[in-house]
Amino acid sequence: MKGVVFTEFLEMVESRFSADMVDDIIEDAGIKSGGAYTAVGSYPFAEMVALVTALSQRSGLEPQALIYTFGHHLFGRFALLYPYSIQGCSSAFMVLGNIEKHIHQEVQKLYPDAQLPQIEVLSSDERSMVLLYSSPRCLAPLASGLIQGALDHFGEQGRIGVEPLNDEGSKVRFVVDLV
């Protein structure tokens, strides 16, 4: 998993909880890297799982909720760090529709080895959009948080329906309705 996800996760933990919480969960997780992440590096996905688990135990919050919050946080950061990714987009739907053909292409330029989820647009009109999320990492809540982040970024109100298509959650359908 790309280092930027780890550095952003720890930043979020620091801002939402505390710097001590960052130290603690790194300690609890017992991870090999010791939490010394750099945005341009790559680290095992298992370390992210361990960090989230540790945060969940320390905070008493569900891992799913934490991941969702992280997704929401991540969209704001991406919009700030990589503004060209959403340049020319005037709505959340435009950004979501651009993920596969534009945003992921930009990511591949910086990180040719990045393993990205597939976000396929199944249908779309002015008020509603149906997306299919596919990833062996089963991070649908992260995607859900990102979608909410996109809606908030453009000041839009919406309802996000999440329909897992299998038990492990590697394929999930999102139905986004503007309200």
């Binding site: 130290d23 010791g34 945005a39 341009v40």
Partner: peptide
């Protein structure tokens, strides 16, 4: 101890970034 660890973490991360930069 926390500060020492954080300092060590940041230093390790910087060094790793430098190595990566050199590799790139």
């Amino acid at each position: 101890l926390r500060y020492q660890k954080r300092y060590q973490r940041e230093k390790t991360a910087r060094k790793e970034a430098e190595v990566l930069l050199e590799q790139r």
